[in-house]
Design a protein around this nucleic acid. Structure first.
Lengths: 158, 158
DNA sequence: ATTCTTGCAAACCATTTGCACAAGG
DNA sequence: CCTTGTGCAAATGGTTTGCAAGAAT
């Protein structure tokens, strides 16, 4: 895992973004970025809030929402809305494009990747004069071997 | 548009579903089903509420939510969560499987269909021992020819 | 008759907003 | 210094829930 260099690059991207937009480079923003990039899978704002509070950061929920908005804008974070519940987020730099299998009973989420999705996207965009920005494909259903009845699980190929 | 027969079939499906689950066949439930199936594209609960109030139905928001839950359960309605805003719904019987192009600036939504999506789904399900139930593919971006800067637009082939 | 549904209004709760203080530029 | 960002707490608003009256079975 090349986490050290990834973190440096990600901070650089965020820094450039803030500069370009005339936003200030506050320590809170970089702390939040760092903590988000230390999280393995998906997370929601409340979880992140408690996680950071536990680490003795003093960030408010408002700042989390605000900063995540910025991170979404510069594509360092992706937002998901599995099921009907709260918004889920995940880091998105160097994580490989992937989609999600969602167990409608347990809530378990597994990632997968299939490059053929791009052919579909290209065709649809051509047919409708659409400039693609990003996509999300969610497949809902049920896992057969529900051994690990856990909440969540990642499956990214390195 | 074979709306007349479609409506009859849809009511039959709902009726059977209610019976099987031991739910009562109230006039409100069938009114809501009928009104939903008379709506062209996507809608949110508030819009449906006002729409029905306008037609002098006396249904509460609570009943709308409750009934939509039942309709989701028997697959007569599909839920979407475009962007970050409120839940959107659409009728799903005999509307053909389709996916969505979403303009991130105007909110315009256009539907498209590409059967190749099923190959991707099949592969992913096989690889992860997953029983597919339904999917949603959202492609976000921007339309090139934004002549109709409207809110929403449908594109279903007959 | 009994139990499920409904309508209404209050409760919920994730997210947003207002404000005074703090701090980046 | 000036303006933006932050923490806190209150406000917001879509959705859910509690309850008494009404209707399906």
């Amino acid at each position: 895992m090349a986490n050290k260099s990834t973190n440096a690059i990600v901070k650089q991207i965020f820094s450039s973004y803030l500069e370009k937009r005339g936003h200030r480079k506050t320590p809170e923003r970089f702390s939040i970025l760092e903590e988000i990039y230390s999280i393995r899978g998906h997370f929601d704002v409340e979880t992140l809030f408690l996680y950071m509070k536990d680490k003795n950061y003093r960030v408010s929920r408002a700042t989390l929402y605000n900063t995540i908005e910025l991170l979404l804008d510069c594509n360092l974070v992706k937002r998901h809305q599995f099921g009907k519940s709260v918004a889920q987020f995940e880091k998105s730099y160097m994580c490989g494009q992937h989609d999600h299998l969602i167990d409608t009973e347990t809530g378990k989420v597994v990632e997968f990747c299939d490059p053929r999705i791009h052919e579909i996207i290209e065709t649809a965009c051509e047919m409708h004069g659409f400039n693609f920005s990003y996509h999300s494909l969610y497949i809902y259903g049920k896992f057969e071997d529900d051994v690990s009845s856990g909440q969540e699980s990642d499956d990214q190929g390195s």
